[in-house]
Amino acid sequence: MLGVRAPDGGGVSLATRALVRADWSAVEAIYREGIATGHATFEAAPPTWEEFDAGKHPALRLVATLDGDVVGWAAGAPVSSRAVYRGVVEHSVYVAESAQGRGVGGLLLAALIVAADDDEVWTLQSGIFPENTASLRLHEQHGFRVVGRRERIGLMTYGPLAGRWRDTILVERRAPG
Rank of each mutant, 00 (worst) to 15 (best):
Q100T: 08
V79I: 15
A26V: 02
V121Q: 02
T16Q: 05
E33R: 01
A96R: 05
D8P: 01
R32V: 08
K56R: 15
A116V: 09
R150H: 15
T48S: 15
R17E: 10
D117Y: 03
A99T: 07
P78L: 06
G68I: 04
Q141E: 14
R102Y: 05
G87I: 13
L60V: 00
E90R: 07
F52C: 05
F42C: 06
D117H: 06
T133D: 14
L161G: 12
V95K: 12
A26K: 03
A77W: 07
T48Q: 06
T123P: 01
R82P: 10
L19S: 01
Y94E: 06
L19Y: 01
V79F: 05
V4R: 14
L124I: 06
E151K: 13
D8G: 07
Y94K: 01
Y94T: 00
I153Y: 07
F42S: 04
T65R: 07
E140P: 05
D69C: 13
S92R: 03
I153P: 04
G101M: 02
T16K: 07
A18G: 04
A116Y: 02
V84W: 09
Y85K: 00
G101A: 11
V84P: 07
V84A: 13
L66A: 11
P58G: 02
Q100R: 15
G76S: 10
R21D: 09
A83V: 12
E90V: 11
D53R: 13
P58H: 07
G177A: 12
L14F: 11
A40D: 14
V147M: 08
S135I: 09
A162I: 10
